[in-house]
């Protein structure tokens, strides 16, 4: 087992464990903080995958904005700071069953796929992934359309969110 594998396993267990805490913790603020831990884990996974840009954007967007928003939302939607009543709904066992089934199904499908145990080739020297990514995002031959659609989506979401959450007096 190489060092990289050990690091991966550590990060993976950390990520999964904190992910599990996200969905089971009673205290929602703690759940949001665990989510941040999970997101950090995913950022490290990105870094392990040589996707440095994604890792940094993960931190900026998810932790810097989305997670903070969650914490705000949790604080704004509580009558008091205590957690009352059960945090799971009545059908939680069914949800758990479905989740396990989903994981089992995915695992089963992956087993039958021949590219599963593939290992990564080295990144060619001098390959600038960030530059390539930037080019791909704005090149008409590549992904400028999805990129623009995403920006339109963001604007729409922004306007929609402001409209929905605005306190109409």
């Amino acid at each position: 087992m190489t060092a990289e594998q050990i690091i991966f396993l550590l990060v993976a267990f950390f990520t999964l464990g904190s992910g599990f805490m996200v969905v089971t913790t009673r205290n929602l603020i703690h759940a949001a903080l665990w989510l941040i831990a999970t997101l950090f884990g995913v950022a490290v996974i990105f870094a392990l995958l040589d996707a440095g840009f994604l890792a940094v954007v993960q931190v900026v967007v998810y932790i810097g904005a989305i997670a903070i928003l969650f914490i705000f939302a949790v604080m704004l939607t509580r009558k008091d700071m205590r957690d009352q009543g059960p945090q799971m709904n009545r059908n939680w066992w069914f949800g758990a069953l479905i989740s396990v089934l989903t994981f089992g199904g995915l695992y089963f499908l992956l087993q039958g796929w021949n590219g599963l145990s593939k290992t990564a080739a080295d990144i060619p020297s001098g390959f600038d992934a960030v530059g390539e990514l930037g080019n791909a995002l704005v090149s008409p031959n590549a992904y400028v359309l999805p990129f623009e659609v995403a920006s339109v989506l963001l604007v729409a979401a922004l306007v929609g969110a402001v409209y929905v959450a605005f306190n109409w007096k």
């Binding site: 479905i98 995915l106 145990s117 593939k118 290992t119």
Partner: peptide, 24 residues
């Protein structure tokens, strides 16, 4: 080297955990 399957299984597991959260 870490094989691809590890990442995929991690992703599947994380997805299932998230699904459980969303459902329950």
């Amino acid at each position: 080297m870490v094989p691809l399957s590890w990442y995929l299984i991690l992703a599947a597991a994380l997805f299932s955990v998230g699904l459980f959260g969303a459902l329950s």
